[in-house]
Computed example of a mutant assay.
Amino acid sequence: IRYIHQDNAGPSAARNCGVAAADSGFIAFLDADDRWTPDKIKRQLRAMESHPQAALVAGDMQEIDKDDAVLTPSVLAKHDILKFFQDLAGAPIPDAFALLMHINFVPTGTVLVRKAAFDDTGGFCADIRYGEDLEVWARIASQHPIVCLPEVLMLRRQHGQNATQNTGPLLEDLVKVTKSVRNWGGPKLRDQGLDPNRLVAEALWELGYWHFTREQLTEARHKFGESLREKFTGRSLLFASAA
Rank of each mutant, 00 (worst) to 15 (best):
Q86N: 07
D87N: 11
D87I: 09
L88K: 00
G90V: 02
G90K: 01
P94A: 08
A96L: 00
F97A: 12
A98Q: 08
A98T: 01
L99M: 09
H102D: 10
I103R: 11
I103M: 13
I103V: 11
N104S: 05
P107I: 02
T108S: 14
T108Q: 13
T108H: 10
T108W: 01
T110Y: 03
T110L: 09
L112T: 05
V113P: 02
K115E: 11
A116K: 15
A117N: 07
D119T: 12
D120Q: 15
T121H: 10
C125M: 11
A126G: 09
A126R: 13
I128V: 14
G131D: 09
E132R: 14
V136Q: 09
A138R: 13
A138Y: 08
R139V: 00
R139L: 03
I140D: 14
I140W: 04
I140G: 11
A141C: 10
Q143L: 09
H144D: 09
I146H: 08
I146D: 09
C148H: 00
C148S: 10
L149N: 06
L149F: 03
V152F: 08
R157A: 15
H159K: 07
H159G: 15
H159T: 10
G160W: 07
Q161G: 12
N162V: 11
A163C: 04
T164Y: 13
T164D: 14
T167R: 13
T167H: 08
L170T: 06
